[in-house]
Amino acid sequence: MQEALRFQPVDAEPVDHADIVVKARHLRRVAEGAARGLSLTIRGLRKAFGDNEVLRGIDLHIPAGQFVAIVGRSGCGKSTLLRLVAGLDAPTAGSIAFGEQPRAQDVRVMFQEPRLLPWARVLSNVEVGLGRERSSADAQARAERALVEVGLGDKRDQWPAVLSGGQKQRVALARALVSQPRVLAFDEPLGALDALTRISMQQLLERVWRDQGFTAILVTHDVAEAVALADRVLVIEDGRIAEDVTIDLPRPRRRGSAELAALEGAILKHLLEGSEDTSGL
């Protein structure tokens, strides 16, 4: 566990001098962590675009603070589900209920594209994440803290255009984190990154999730990523949850371990069989 706490993203600058502060903050977060996440209950959720029934009855309960990964073939409705959870679209039928009525800034989404404002400096981009609290007195301090959290404290005055893909995505993460959301939904946030950056981002995601204790819903194409990060992996097929796999392995998980590989293999097999079925039709 100590290892996970000390982890720094690969290209972050060393923050030894601030180590004690970081640890103290971490401990405080863990203490409030249980209260931070929101539980989520989905009942009979359906979504159709015209004749195209994408989601055909999703029933799901996610306990507060759980890390859930959603996998499934392209076009199976993962993004659609995420957008419904985030309130970006309205369901055709069914309901989504949070453990408590969330405020606007309690539910945040992160997309595959960083969606940074190119004409705003990194820090202002993070401030956008504060929503209505943008004009509060401590807005800038909070944005700075979020930037440090993702290891980009020294980039606050840069234009997004000069950042690397991974750094942009970390700014987007800081923006999503700055309002201290209680549910954070990720739609393939690492899909466009190279393998190494991806791994360091995965570790960053895991760290902030453990620090802040939000409920995480991660849509991904990468089954290895899903089993490495999540408490639970959902496989969506034909608009329903076809499998619900609990990943009961201690953290930090060692990439490439036999247990992870076995779980990954099982889920992949399921996905591939599904695709053979349809191609046979």
Binding site: A86, L88, A104, Q105, R108, V109, F111, E113, R115, L117, A120, V128, G129, G131, R132, R175
Partner: peptide, 21 residues
């Protein structure tokens, strides 16, 4: 349009959306 959606998600009012995005 993705930036506009982003602005809306983060609770920008119409005025802010115009000014900032």
């Amino acid at each position: 349009p993705q930036l506009i959606e982003m602005g809306r998600i983060y609770g920008m009012t119409d005025g802010e959306l115009f000014r900032r995005v």
